[in-house]
């Protein structure tokens, strides 16, 4: 079963989104990197909607909080991530299917470590239960 990871990356933290793809060692797991003006641009409902598509893992990469260009942006993104995990726990989906990392803008080794962490996470979690659900699978095979 093919899997997919979506990464929302702050443009300050990750000025070159293509660099993320070049670091990707996730094998057959598809990676999509979407640049954002700030990690705080991501709202809980956007993370949930992405997971519902379904996607197997959603990740947000932002700047360290004291380095955020928009002062409180990265801090707010952290709060939203926390309550997105609560929403997931409430409906019985693994909270680990969303994640967030922060780094110093331009720190390539930190970025590489984050990408490795994302890869490890998706491999450990496996496919989303939304993909494994019988109704969905049946509908796909019928198409």
């Amino acid at each position: 079963m093919s899997m997919e990871v979506v990464v929302f990356a702050c443009q300050q933290a990750v000025p070159e989104p293509d660099a993320v793809k070049s670091l990707w060692r996730g094998g057959e797991v598809r990676l999509r990197v979407l640049p954002e003006p700030c990690s705080s641009k991501m709202e809980a409902f956007q993370l949930l909607r992405t997971l519902a598509t379904p996607v197997d893992l959603v990740w947000v990469i932002g700047c360290e909080e004291q380095l955020c260009r928009y002062n409180e942006g990265s801090h707010r993104a952290g709060g939203r991530m926390a309550y997105t995990k609560k929403y997931l726990a409430e409906i019985g989906l693994e909270p680990a299917r969303v994640g967030r990392s922060v780094l110093t803008p331009g720190d390539e080794s930190a970025l590489a470590a984050i990408i490795a962490e994302i890869s490890d996470r998706v491999q450990a979690l496996g496919a989303s239960p939304l993909r494994r659900a019988p109704n969905t699978a049946a509908r796909r095979s019928a198409k």
């Binding site: 709202e43 409902f45 949930l48 909607r49 239960p129 939304l130």
Partner: peptide, 21 residues
């Protein structure tokens, strides 16, 4: 508006995971 989007997503995820879209 945001809470509508959150609840709708939660409902879709939960139902899809249960095999009942």
């Amino acid at each position: 508006e945001k809470e509508v989007a959150i609840l709708a997503s939660e409902l879709r995820i939960a139902r899809k995971a249960a095999g009942n879209d």
